[in-house]
């Protein structure tokens, strides 16, 4: 009994509630006429779409920079990569790779600068990250209007300049990962093998990186900065590297998201994209200063499962569109829970 109590305290009751809620929804789905195989396939797909953006939280959390509310900075790098790739007109897998490489280039520069900035404001990272993210999104909104793009698939038809709010990637690299080695079971159930493999690859890369000399130094900086400094690790450098890595992962994440979603969303689209990712990793069991690969995978699966299942099940159960409210309350409630939890290691 004591063990159960301890487990609940460590794992946190909000996570348990969310877990059981999701289980309940999967059980209830067939009774209200929601196809289980279709929903499960949907959950898998959305898991793959979002996992890398959730993964982008890990390096910053581990190095003690807190939750990466500045994810939009990585996202706009990704958008730059995606739009330039379409502008160049490369289709298929090549187009996707070019987008990724260009995005990584921008993300590494922006991420490094962003890291230097966050080093100046230790202790206030999260609030500042949020507003740096917002400001960069608004700045890029101006840029989308004035940058000299001219691919007819992307600019407004009548003006001949300025990017559209949503750009389709159809005909370029729509679902290149999803369809790679995709396995179909029946009419509704598809495993997006390529997508899942790509996610696995990214997770593996981060996993291996966190175990290299640099990676362990980064974790050391996060868990005990004074000790790290004493043993000759440059705290600022480690933090900057972690921020850069997070930003780069965010950039790749949004491109993976777009190739599956089918559209590039510009302008104010990325404004609030950090929040679902933050909520997901917290639901997976991470705290403000500790996160693992397992947290990423479990969290993304639970959160995306919740987002997929609530609209269909709740709508057919209660005959109203309550799912939006549930999404807001669950995701922000989870972040709030993590922020207010008394942490053992102070920042």
């Amino acid at each position: 009994m004591l063990k159960v109590k301890e487990f609940i305290r460590d794992f946190g009751w909000p996570r348990l509630i969310i877990f059981f809620f999701l289980v309940f929804m999967f059980i209830a789905a067939p009774f209200v006429g929601v196809r289980l195989d279709a929903s499960f396939s949907d959950v898998l797909n959305r898991f793959g779409m979002n996992a890398i953006m959730v993964l982008a939280m890990v390096p910053m959390v581990q190095s003690g920079c807190g939750l990466n509310f500045g994810l939009p900075l990585g996202i706009i790098s990704g958008l730059l990569g995606a739009t330039i790739s379409i502008q160049l007109g490369v289709t298929g897998f090549g187009g996707f790779l070019i987008a990724v490489f260009i995005a990584l280039f921008f993300a590494s520069i922006l991420g490094w600068l962003y890291g230097l900035l966050l080093n100046k404001v230790k202790g206030e990272e999260m609030t500042i990250a949020m507003y740096v993210g917002f400001a960069s999104v608004m700045f890029m909104s101006i840029m989308w209007l004035v940058l000299p793009y001219n691919s007819p698939n992307m600019v407004w038809g009548y003006a001949g300049k300025g990017l559209r709010t949503t750009i389709t990637v159809e005909g370029y690299w729509l679902r290149v990962l999803n369809n790679f080695l995709a396995i179909k079971f029946g009419e509704f159930f598809v495993i997006p093998t390529g997508l899942l493999l790509f996610v696995a690859l990214c997770v593996l890369i981060v996993y291996v990186f966190m175990r290299t000399k640099t990676g362990t130094a980064m974790t050391a900086v996060g868990s005990n900065p004074d000790f790290a400094r004493a043993s000759g690790v440059s705290v600022d450098r480690m933090r900057a590297i972690s921020v850069m890595l997070s930003t780069m992962l965010g950039a790749v994440g949004i491109i993976v998201y777009e190739q599956s979603f089918g559209f590039i969303q510009l302008y104010t689209g990325p404004l609030y994209m950090a929040f679902p990712a933050v909520a997901a990793i917290l639901i997976g069991g991470a705290s403000v200063n500790k996160a693992s690969m397992l947290n990423v995978l479990v969290g993304t699966f639970l959160f995306q499962g919740l987002l997929t299942m609530t609209p269909s099940v709740i709508n057919s159960l209660l005959q109203n569109d309550m799912s939006e409210v549930i999404r807001i309350v669950v995701s922000n409630g989870m972040i709030l829970y993590a922020l207010t939890r008394k942490t053992k290691v102070s920042k």
Binding site: T127, N332, G333
Partner: peptide
Amino acid sequence: VMNRAKGREMVTGYILAFFMNGVYMF
């Protein structure tokens, strides 16, 4: 809530506002 999150009141307040937005909508 902010008393439980000393040192990060601002970001906590921000998220709390989002959370309560859900309650308000409900």
